[in-house]
Design a protein around this nucleic acid. Structure first.
Length: 292
DNA sequence: CGCCTTTGACCGGCGC
DNA sequence: GCGCCGGTCAAAGGCG
């Protein structure tokens, strides 16, 4: 993170400049998709839920056709816009969650197809890490040991570290973060056989920003939304969310998409904390078992 | 009593 | 091989 200025894949918290309690003026931002414009937040809140699959389709950020990929590297650092040219001769590398894990059968089957490398099923996801030598390479996987779950990172402007998201979490660790005065907390979903984890840390560049990284997908519904949110029943994702705009960061070919946690929409109280964020890590197109 | 957080120890990966 | 670092474990204690 020290070479932030030179690193084309560093994370740029563009949303930090937005005013309190106001969504970003997405319609005024370059690259904003007018078809997803909403005259008001309320109108947008009442609209149909946009799931991960819809996001990748609607904003044309599918990695299958894109010359760039947005992803969360193995080290958990948000990276974006990795130029395809810089990948050298490396083959595309599917991001393949452990299919034997407790994720839903539909999702597992889809990912299995990708990892099997069938002729008619080209890998859709590239997982690369940037070496210190400024080159991109596949992450090292000694003995093909533990495959990692997909990760989704969120940045949220909030005074609260551990934001409510509708699921129950148990903290299992806390570590000091190098070069940061703020610790990183580790949480696990308390539901039996659910392997979803999340990390919560505060940005050292902007202490008002909480970075939440989810790993894996829930194999159950949110215990909170079960009673009050029928839409969430249809999408047992770790953090259902809605898009309300996107921007085109400087020198980047693909937009960043703004989101609001679906649960946040349901729980209006949470809106006090300006729970708007920047989704820099584009989710897999197969997330709900359907191709885009 | 069950569930949770805290916190030091431990482990594995990785760079030098 | 050694040290650093991120991630996890597990015992202890707090709380309702």
């Amino acid at each position: 993170m020290s070479d932030t200025n030179e690193d084309p894949c560093h994370f740029n918290p563009l949303f930090a400049q937005f005013g309190d309690n106001q969504p970003p003026p997405a319609q005024n931002l370059p690259g904003f998709d007018a078809s997803y414009n909403h005259t008001s937040l309320t109108e947008w809140l009442n609209g149909p839920c946009v799931d991960y699959n819809t996001q990748s389709t609607a904003f044309d950020v599918s990695c299958s056709s894109s010359s760039e990929v947005h992803h969360l590297a193995d080290d958990g650092v948000l990276k974006n816009s990795c130029p395809r040219e810089s990948r050298g001769t490396s083959e595309t590398y599917p991001l393949t969650p452990n299919s034997s894990a407790s994720s839903s059968s539909t999702e597992a089957a889809v990912f299995e197809d990708a990892s099997n490398g069938k002729k008619d099923q080209q890998p859709r996801w590239c997982e690369l890490v940037k070496e210190k030598s400024n080159t991109w390479s596949k992450p090292k996987r000694k003995g093909e040991t533990k495959q990692k779950e997909p990760r989704y990172a969120f940045m949220t402007k909030s005074e609260i570290d551990h934001l409510e998201d509708g699921y129950r979490w148990r903290k299992y660790g806390q570590k000091a973060v190098k070069d940061s005065p703020f610790p990183r907390s580790y949480y696990r979903c308390t539901t039996q056989k659910c392997t979803v984890k999340k990390r919560v840390e505060r940005s050292f560049e902007d202490p008002s920003i909480v970075i939440t990284t989810y790993e894996g997908q829930h194999n159950h519904h949110s215990p909170t939304t079960l009673r009050g949110n029928a839409a969430a029943l249809l999408s047992p994702l770790s953090t259902p969310q809605k898009l309300f705009g996107q921007i085109l960061p400087n020198n980047q070919a693909h937009p960043s998409s703004f989101y609001v946690n679906h649960f946040t929409l349901y729980n209006q109280q949470q809106l006090k904390h300006r729970d708007y964020g920047l989704l820099q890590d584009i989710v897999p197109p197969f997330i709900d078992g359907r191709e885009p």
